[in-house]
Design a protein around this nucleic acid. Structure first.
Lengths: 267, 267
DNA sequence: TAGTGGTCTAGACCACTTA
DNA sequence: AAGTGGTCTAGACCACTAG
């Protein structure tokens, strides 16, 4: 199956009246040339001074365009030598949780069913992750997340119980959970750690997630969150059937300017 | 368990003689202030003009520092309004395959054992992914990747067989596979698509990966690669036991300048 | 209208690499 | 020494938001 591909070959010059700023246009032009194979991995790009002359822009503008490509791992710059096209690196691949975020950003699709909230003595895991002594009080929450009324995620979470900290109450978000994914997060959490791994779903999860009887694999997304004093606030994990969550990404050079979706501001 | 944390409170001024450039220092200062809670999510940062005066740098330098924070999703800039601290967004989390890359970058640790190479008629999946007709010839490869002589990954791959394309031969890398992960990749592959999902390991994989008898969960890393003419070249997947590969990441604000590990050049 | 960020200029000086 | 990228200046003009 060999078909001749039409190559539009864009004009490759800066349009000063365009909506896109000059540095972004130049970055797209160069990225396109790399993607079309005009510059192959290992090749040196024209020097920045040369690019200034070719595209009639100032050094700073060329600079910014090259910086963008460097940030996107398309090229590598070496002082005194030049700018070189980087080879494909599988290890540079980054999987986003965007699907989750998109899901939660539509409040009509997702409903959170609270299964259980109670005070428990912290077990081994919770004590270690939350910096408690085994037996200290913790709040235990079990939730079921329904997507279009179908069970999708099973969530278990332990929250530090400390009357001196209003954090916990505010952070519980018992009914929504949405803030965490789509932002807002009311600003009491400073950061956290996330881990994804494959697990064998246990009986409880299988029952809740409407899986068949037999053994089934699932993804486990574990999380620990910290407040602004670097004290752990919550530890827990989401379980889902493997067909409900899949992480995917692209590597390599693409034509569009959307090499990485997270570039709000220029460089 | 509440302990008083010592807060070093760095000097928060630019050291012109430091190794780090001014824009990076300023970015670290501002990130630190956000991380310490001086600016909370939703707060507005001082205007760029004010930052110029406070830290005695030019507008472009402030600009670059703010751009870095925007790229790292620490702040959001709104024209005409100001720069604001972003709340935590779980969906923005990105999982890297860095562990894999690190693994493969040490050639002493990894050995590839070739289990099988032969020509086969493409099946349903291979035909669809590689743009072939079912029954077209494809090269089928099975590999076992050993880490410190212990089986870690089982790899199955289908390569397009086309005598007119030398790509395949060069890309097979029958014995190493290393190029793909650590770079080099000899420049014949333009890009690809990667997907991670949880699966139940089958008998064959269980046997090869030295798992126990019972059912076990594993991660499946599927890949499709394209050449510079956008033609699919290879389709396949890696299987590993869940305890061999785990994706983890951090979200939120950190003190160090290593918010994202991929920032070679300034902005 | 005043203040904000967004873009861009036309240089300067420095550090580095290669020859 | 010549050429490269790395940083930085001191402004300019524009688009946008608010009161």
């Amino acid at each position: 199956m060999k078909t001749a591909r039409p190559k539009p070959e864009p004009p490759d010059r800066i349009d000063r009246d365009a909506y896109q700023p000059a540095y972004a246009q130049l970055a797209d032009i160069l990225r396109g040339q790399v993607a079309r194979g005009r510059f192959l991995p290992g090749d040196r790009l024209p020097s920045e001074a040369e690019l200034c002359r070719t595209y009639q822009v100032s050094p700073m503008t060329v600079r910014r365009a090259v910086n963008i490509l460097a940030d996107q791992d398309v090229v590598r710059t070496v002082q005194g030598l030049g700018t070189f096209v980087k080879p494909l690196q599988l290890g540079a691949a980054a999987f986003q949780l965007r699907e989750l975020q998109d899901l939660f950003s539509d409040p009509d699709q997702v409903r959170v069913k609270l299964l259980d909230v109670r005070m428990v003595p912290a077990g081994q895991g919770a004590a270690a992750e939350l910096g408690l002594s085994p037996g200290d009080k913790a709040i235990f929450i079990r939730r079921l997340l329904l997507v279009r009324e179908e069970p999708a995620f099973y969530h278990r979470e332990y929250l530090v119980y400390d009357p001196g900290r209003p954090v916990v109450e505010a952070e519980m978000e018992v009914t929504s959970l949405r803030g965490l994914f789509s932002g807002a997060g009311d600003g009491l959490i400073k950061g956290g750690r996330l881990t994804v791994e494959a697990v064998l779903l246990d009986e409880e999860a299988l029952g809740l997630l409407a899986g068949g009887p037999g053994p089934a694999a699932g993804l486990r997304l574990e999380h620990v969150f910290y407040d602004f004093d670097d004290r752990p606030v919550s530890w827990g994990w989401f379980l889902c059937r493997s067909d409900r969550l899949r992480l995917s990404t692209r590597v390599g050079y693409e034509r569009a300017g959307s090499g990485r979706p997270g570039l709000k501001r220029g460089s």
